[in-house]
Nucleic acid binder design. Sequence first.
DNA 1: AAAATTCCCAACCGCATCTTC
DNA 2: CGAAGATGCGGTTGGGAATTT
Length: 277
Amino acid sequence: MGKGRAPCCDKTKVKRGPWSQEEDLKLISFVHKYGHENWRSLPKQAGLLRCGKSCRLRWINYLRPDVKRGNFSAEEEETIIKLHQSFGNKWSKIASKLPGRTDNEIKNVWHTHLKKRLSSDTNLNADEAAIKGSLDEEEETSQESSRNASMSFGGSNNSSKEDDTHICQTFEYFQDYSEFTGILQEVDKPELLEVPFDLDPDIWSFIDGSDSFQQPENSSNSWAPRECEEDEVEKWFKHLESELGLVENDNQQQQHNEAKEESSSSSLLESYELLIH
DNA sequence: AAAATTCCCAACCGCATCTTC
DNA sequence: CGAAGATGCGGTTGGGAATTT
């Protein structure tokens, strides 16, 4: 890098605001194939009308496969509080101690929940101190339990089901086959694998599907497309079919369909990780 | 049921730091 | 060593969802 480069981006020519599913797909598949060594040039090569900064943020905070979504557990919240006491508003530092959590997410949780909780705890403790002398033993016990109840605020015990919901929300808009093909054609007219079912394989055939993007001019090793071994793809498809119940008999299929909404979200994430790693 | 208010979070902005020339 | 671009970070905000009146 160095002198004579163009500015980060022309803000009059880039799209802003919420990301569409199409943009997400383009970004995911581009990063999957070529990595993200150069955020500045990525939007152009991926066919995105976005600032590189925006792409980076979207990837880190939302699309990265290892992003953990859903409510923070009580343990995570306590960890954040402790780390905040040590590091202050160093959100990235705090995030590095919480695998799967992003600095942005931690920052949001801090401002929306933990800060309030801490200040209410402080007030509670002050009140406690003020009235302590006049309380008999029974009243003190009551105060203690009240404070403990306050400490467990945050909805952290319902994380399991809500995790699934959040993961599902992340992936749910990838479920329309026709949209994928449209995006495929728009990105770079890749050869789409014919997949006889309607869901996730389309995403991944899209992602693995050949030369969807402009190859960077000076391709270094990190930019070179990853080799997608056929047996690896086949293995992954089998895994996916199994996860989605597509290799089951009718009864199993019916049972599976009933549970489909719950299982598909985690399966998707699992499959994504399986493919990426 | 509708309006008002509050809450939440994804995304933007601008500054700081790092990297390269 | 300084200049300039790239990237990272933290503060802030807009708008949709949820809740209250």
